[in-house]
Design a protein around this nucleic acid. Structure first.
Length: 296
DNA sequence: CCGATTACCTGCACGC
DNA sequence: TGCGTGCAGGTAATCG
C-alpha cells in the first residue's frame, strides 16, 4: 500500500490513541511477518507508555518510555484499524466499532489512555511489513535508518540536493527517485506523478538533471518543487486508496482521484497543450506511467 | 563498488 | 464455473 503520504496518514490516525497512552497488552498472532519479530517482543512492549508517534520515510516510529522505539513498516499491504468501545469515542473522531478478528490480523495493541481505551490492530495479507524494537538513542544508526536518504518534505529537498545526490548516476531518473538511500519515502505512484508534473522522462539518466559542481539546475529545481507539492497534496488528501489503504478510522484516502499519470494508461495526457497519451512501460520490474510526448 | 533482477506473499481481475 | 496468468503502493538478497 503505502508510500510516505499513506504512512503519514496512518501516523496521524494513530497518534491520538497512542500518544501518552500505555500499552496494556500485545497479542502477537504469528512468529514473523517479513522478518521474525524481535526477541521478547510482547514483554518489551507491555506496560510501556508511548511518548511520541513519529515517522521516518515510510516507517512509523513509536517512541516508548522504556528507552526503546517500536519501528513498524507496512510493506505493500499493511494497514491499521482502531477499534473503540461504544460510547468511548474520542471527541471529533469516528472509528470502527469493536469487532471479531479478521483474516490476517497479526498484531493487536490494547491501549489505555487517560480518557479512552482502544484496540489497534495491524492487518497485512501479504506480510511484507515488519516490526522491530531499537534503542531510541541508536535510531539513526539502526539498520533500517543508517543508510537512509533525506525526507522529500520540507526544505531539505531542493534543486541543489537533487543535483548533488544524482550527480554521476547513470541509472534512469525514475530508479534514482525510488532509491531510498538518496531520497527516502517516495514510491511508484508519487515518482510517476512528480515526473509527469515536471515534464521529465523517467528514462533519462539521473545525472542529466545535475551539474558537476553540485549546483542546482532548472530541471532539478523543478523536480524538487513538484515532489514536495505532490507529497504535500497527497498527505492533505489522506493518501491514495487503490486496494488496501485506509485511514485508521476506515475512511478512504482520495488522492487517487487526482492522479495524472499513475494507473492512467491509454488516457489522454492532461498537460496543457499536450495531445499525448499516457503509456505504461516496465522499468526495473515495475510499471512506469508517463507521457512520452511532454516528458522529455 | 554498481545497477538490474529476483524473491518474498496473498488477493484480485482477466481471459479462456 | 474454474483455472492459469499477470499484476499490485514494499525492501532485501542475489546476480552479473
Amino acid at each position: 500500500m503505502p508510500e510516505l503520504p499513506e504512512v503519514e496518514t496512518v501516523r496521524r490516525g494513530l497518534a491520538p490513541v497512542m500518544e501518552d497512552a500505555v500499552i496494556e497488552a500485545v497479542t502477537q498472532n504469528r512468529p514473523d511477518l517479513r522478518f521474525p519479530f524481535p526477541d521478547k517482543f510482547v514483554e518489551r512492549l507491555k506496560g510501556a507508555r508511548v511518548k511520541h508517534m513519529g515517522r521516518r520515510a515510510k516507517y512509523l516510529v513509536v517512541e516508548l518510555d522504556t528507552g526503546e522505539a517500536l519501528i513498524m513498516h507496512l510493506g505493500m499491504s499493511g494497514s491499521f484499524r482502531i477499534e473503540l468501545e461504544e460510547g468511548n469515542e474520542l471527541p471529533g473522531t469516528y472509528h470502527h466499532p469493536r469487532s471479531e478478528a479478521k483474516a490476517h490480523d497479526h498484531v493487536v495493541f490494547a491501549m489505555k489512555g487517560k480518557t479512552a481505551e482502544a484496540r489497534i490492530i495491524y492487518n497485512d495479507p501479504r506480510r511484507f511489513g515488519f516490526m522491530d524494537l531499537v534503542a531510541t538513542s541508536e535510531l539513526s544508526l539502526c539498520r533500517h535508518f543508517e543508510k537512509m536518504g533525506i525526507e522529500p518534505t520540507g526544505n531539505e529537498l531542493n534543486g541543489e540536493t537533487i543535483s548533488r545526490l544524482f550527480a554521476g548516476k547513470s541509472t534512469p531518473l525514475k530508479a534514482a527517485l525510488l532509491d531510498q538511500r538518496l531520497i527516502a519515502g517516495l514510491g511508484n505512484i508519487y515518482v510517476c506523478e512528480a515526473l509527469w508534473r515536471s515534464g521529465l522522462s523517467p528514462k533519462r539518466k539521473a545525472s542529466t538533471i545535475t551539474r558537476k559542481s553540485g549546483k542546482a539546475t532548472e530541471r532539478s529545481e523543478l523536480l524538487a518543487l513538484h515532489i514536495r507539492d505532490v507529497i504535500a497534496e497527497a498527505i492533505e488528501a489522506g493518501g491514495s486508496s487503490l486496494r488496501d489503504h485506509r485511514q485508521t478510522n476506515g475512511d478512504l484516502g482520495y488522492f487517487q482521484h487526482r492522479f495524472s499519470a499513475y494507473d492512467r494508461e491509454g488516457e489522454a495526457c492532461s498537460k496543457v497543450e499536450c495531445d499525448g497519451v499516457i503509456e505504461r512501460m516496465v522499468q526495473s520490474g515495475r510499471s512506469t506511467f508517463y507521457c512520452a510526448k511532454c516528458q522529455r
